[in-house]
Nucleic acid binder design. Sequence first.
DNA 1: CATACATTCCAGTAAGTATTAGAATGATAT
DNA 2: ATATCATTCTAATACTTACTGGAATGTATG
Lengths: 231, 231
Amino acid sequence: MNKLAIKTVVSKHSSRQIKDGLYEQVARIGKAASSPKRLELLELLCQGEMNVEQLAVKAEISVKLASSHLSVLKSSSLVVSRRDGKNIYYSLAAPEVAKFWVELRSLAEERLLDLQAALGSLVAGSGSLAVMDREMLLREAASGEVVVIDVRPETEYAAGHLPFARSIPVAELKKRIAEIPKDKTVVAYCRGPFCLLAGEALNILHEAGHKALRLEDGVAEWQARGLSIQR
Amino acid sequence: MNKLAIKTVVSKHSSRQIKDGLYEQVARIGKAASSPKRLELLELLCQGEMNVEQLAVKAEISVKLASSHLSVLKSSSLVVSRRDGKNIYYSLAAPEVAKFWVELRSLAEERLLDLQAALGSLVAGSGSLAVMDREMLLREAASGEVVVIDVRPETEYAAGHLPFARSIPVAELKKRIAEIPKDKTVVAYCRGPFCLLAGEALNILHEAGHKALRLEDGVAEWQARGLSIQR
DNA sequence: CATACATTCCAGTAAGTATTAGAATGATAT
DNA sequence: ATATCATTCTAATACTTACTGGAATGTATG
């Protein structure tokens, strides 16, 4: 075995190590995205900054478990945390993370038949706005032809919402139903396609005799399409 | 507890189950992307269809292990397989999967300092073409001002390559070096930013006195930017 | 039909992950 | 300071995953 051969072997060896390291790093992001609860937390954080307890309640898990999932998300640099008094607030590390969530979910919707079926049964019945309607919706909302309502909790609305949308959390919708003009079409949206709030809102609106549609987008989807949100 | 209360509880319960199911599905994609070796296989499949052994050799793992990783990728619908005689050939289930790989890697590059450092040390020294140069490269390659060479194995070139690129696998570069005009700038590319072939090619080219640059894109990156490839 | 070959399936081990309970930390309010 | 609250850390459990070796499957070839 001559020097050249040795050199080749060594270099092959180390180049394999380099490669392994690179893929290993990317896999860290994949690992972060490999747990359903972490994905749910990530989607919640797309709605805006929240503390551990808010996240735990909304994802319906224990605070401890939320904390541990959040620390995984943090160690993969998808989220950051900040202390404010007693509470620790988490938020997305960058807008690209929201885009990543939207793209991951889109890929899953497209590739996994099980997911398509589950979503289909969710959407069936409650009229859902087609994707290409975004620009039109924007125009009609601007002109006042349709009323866009954000049915998420008020704090999430405050952190960022669709243009021309007004906040009526689904919990208050029944008693505030009079605020909505009867002669206009209502478009309700929530956190995104996986969120059930808009569906609930549609039920209430239809029961009250309103013409109501759902927009499947949430703020993350809206932004991922390059459209701007308001604060 | 009245009927309404019961109904609310039941519906809350089942809506949680629905949600869990949805996130669970998306997490299947995340799980598929949570192993470094699977990601490497996925990137290889972005170069074109390959059988299990080819994949195993290129990823430097056993055939058995490759097979088991591939079956995970298959069960998450990211890849599909087809039998041709004795061999089973795997390929991406859809072009969107290649785009997903590019986006996942980009997010990792952007968020993870460790990865930036590792990549930086790879690229350092070997001149690398900036991202905005893609359109210009295309024009200069079209006019013949620069020579674009694809240094991947020939079969990958055949499965799809950049416009105006000619195939000179890095293994043959030394003995075919005369084919490259001395008076033109050479741009070498391989499978993408994580691939070491283009780097090796640059060393050989520089040694032979050529002016050579690296394009970090592979065909997956090129396509993800909306540019077309040739067959 | 028998043989060779490519790939997958199965079983087992070692390592890693999700989840829960209990202790510890760090900030605020009295 | 002391008590209190939100959150994290530690330890322990059950569960899942990566990888290895040997057997099994299915296809082509003599």
